[in-house]
Structures are given as C-alpha cells and as structure tokens.
Amino acid sequence: MKMQLLTPKDMLRHNAHLVLRLLRYNAELSRSEIARMTGSSRSTISHIMQYLEEKKLVVPCGIGNKGVGRSSTLFRFNPEARYGVGIDITKDGISGIMADLQGTIIAHKKYGIGEFSPESVARQIRHIYSSLCGQVSIPQEFIVGIGVMVPGPVDSEGTVIRSVELSWQGPVNLEQLIEESAVNQTQLPPLSIINNANAKALAEACFNINNDSANIVYIENHKGLGAGFVDSHYTLLYGSSGIAMEVGKMFVHNNGVFTQADSFLVINDESVVKQLKKGFQSENPLQDEDVRLISDILAQVISQIAALFNPRKVILDVPYIQNEQSLKFIKKALLKYVNSSSLIPSPLVELPSVQRAHSALGGIAQAILHSPFDFVLKSTLSDL
C-alpha cells in the first residue's frame, strides 16, 4: 500500500488546528510558547496567528514576561467571534438555543406546540429563531448557521425520510419548508437538518467538558434505538444509503413492530424489541431484574459496535440508566461479551456529559461544522 505524503499545505492545516486547539484550552499563550508547544517555526506560527486574528478567532490579551528575554504579546481564543443556533424538535415541543463557538449559551427559548405538521413546525422554527435573536444584540452576519435536530432518519441532502415521533410518514424537505414559511422573505443563516441522535453525538464530541470525546458512539433508547458515530476528525459516519445514524437504528411502532432504515448492525429479534420497548415506555422505575435484562441486550449491541468500529467511548442516553449505579449493570454485562473475543476492544461506557436541557448544542455543532468556521472544531483548516 502506497503511503500518502503530507503536502506543506496539509501540514499548515494541521498546525493551524493545533494552534487553535491550544488556545481554546489554555488561558493565554504567546507566539513563542505556541511555537515551542507545537514544535513549529516562529514564522509558521506568525502566519497562522495572522490568519486567526483576521478572523477574530484569537485576540491579544496582554503582555507576558517569563523572566527570560523580552516581553511577548499574549493571545487567547475568542469564542465570541461567531455564534450558532440549535433547534431541537421533540414530541414535547420545540426548544432553541444560541451559543458561541465554545458552546456557551447566551439565549434560549422553548415552545410547546399542539400541531406537528411539517408546515407548522417550519413556521415555529422561524418564530423561535426570531425570538432568540430578539434576546441578544448579535448581528445576523455573526451567526454561522442554524442546525435543526429531528427525531427520524435524515439523508445527506437534509431530507427527513420519516419521523414516527412526529407522525411524518413520508419524506419531508424541512429546509425548503422553513425557507418558504417566511412572511416577509427574511433571509436566514444557512440551515442544516440533522437526526437528533447524530446531533447529540456531535454535541458530546465538540462540547464535552473534558474535550476528549472524538471517536465515539452515542446511543439513545427512546422511541427506538438511535445512534450516531463521530470519528476522530469530528465527522459523522454515514450508511450506504446516505443516512448518517445507522449503527443499529430501529423505529419501534406502538404495535411493537419495528422497521429498519439502513444499518451496519441488524437487530431483528422480536423479543429484543419488546424488552427495549418496555424500557422506554415504562412510566415507573424499572426493577433491577428488568434493568439487568435490558442492560444485557445493550451490552451485546455495544460489543458488536466495538467489533465494527472500535470507538474509544460509548455514550448511553437511555431513560432507565441515569446514574453510575445503573450503568454498572451494562459495564458488567459488557465484560462478558468483550472477553469472549480477544479481538474486540472494550470501549469506555459513560453517561452523557451534555445536559439534556442543552441537547440543542448538537444543532449548533452541526451548524458550525457546516460553516466556513468548521476548523474551530475539526482537525483541518480548509480555507487556508
């Protein structure tokens, strides 16, 4: 296999992302400190810093003197250079937030709606965007985009294939409906439609408090078993049909019958479906016996995912596993399946770090990653 050599431009992109990453998670650094920490030349760092200053992504914040040589200008990351809007659609209503490039929320709004037709939802999305803008004084040109999270499969073009939760039985071009719902043809920032499980995976990868969540699988068990896989480059893994969520995605209907879109992982045991359905439809806390049984099922799913994708971490968002005590059932069951094959690595299994109330951060991550400012979160700087 022929090794692909990195070009000078590739190296420049890599170093630029590394500089921005250092500045995001260090209070303040000088050019010489950045050069030393990255192993890059002063001239390379000066070129990158000039670019980042022009974008307002870094700003000078004082003078530093470490006691050796002359004083140097210190720089810090400026998360307020741009903002994103995330909108999360669920059966309980529509919630929206506006946040900066570091995920700090500056405005939020939630509406309960009684009518979930695609046209009504499109109008509500415009309304909630206007409400968010009314709470803050942010010029629209500083908003990189709007990420809309939908419960259901979304293809690579942003079309919602179906949504059982919202009773959308056929394809819905939600982006077009939002554009057409304008009363006075008000121009919106770029729109991006994404499946909610995928968006939550992006939120964990991009805004995790420990900043260590790239190469993860995010699994949620609510209306079905939804999942999203984010690789080490903060990119969603897409299935063969162009739907980016399929690591065992199931849609479970009220009669217990499930349909499957496009999947890397097939679960077709009716008893499994019934147990998962029991878990997310139960109004009362599950007994330990039920939790153990469902945990065993999820452990099998995780072990298969580990064999296929070797993720570093699996995030579980399920209503009946909300603390470390209940999480231990899955960890214990997982050891049984992982140990059965020395070829299967055991991923970390954790609860979500992004609060459920802030799940719309996933929409913001999607908006940023589909904007010219994607390099703030990703490992490339495409427009240098």
Score class of each variant (00 low, 15 high):
M11W: 02
E28H: 04
S30E: 11
R31C: 06
E33Q: 12
A35N: 09
L52N: 12
E54Q: 12
C61M: 06
C61S: 14
S72Q: 15
S72P: 00
F75S: 01
E80I: 06
Y83V: 03
G86H: 07
I94V: 11
G96H: 08
M98I: 10
L101T: 05
Q102C: 03
G103F: 10
T104W: 07
G112F: 15
I113T: 10
R126W: 10
C133W: 13
E141V: 01
F142L: 10
V154K: 05
V154S: 02
V154W: 10
G158I: 11
R162H: 15
S163M: 06
E180D: 14
S181L: 01
S181D: 05
A182N: 11
Q187D: 04
Q187F: 04
L188C: 05
P189V: 09
N195M: 03
K200L: 05
A201P: 06
I216S: 01
Y218W: 13
E220K: 00
S232G: 07
I243K: 03
K249L: 06
M250P: 00
M250Q: 15
F251P: 00
H253Y: 03
V257I: 09
V257N: 01
P285L: 06
L286P: 13
D288M: 05
D290I: 04
R292M: 06
I297S: 01
Y320C: 12
L327K: 08
K328G: 02
Y337R: 11
L351D: 08
S353K: 14
T380P: 01
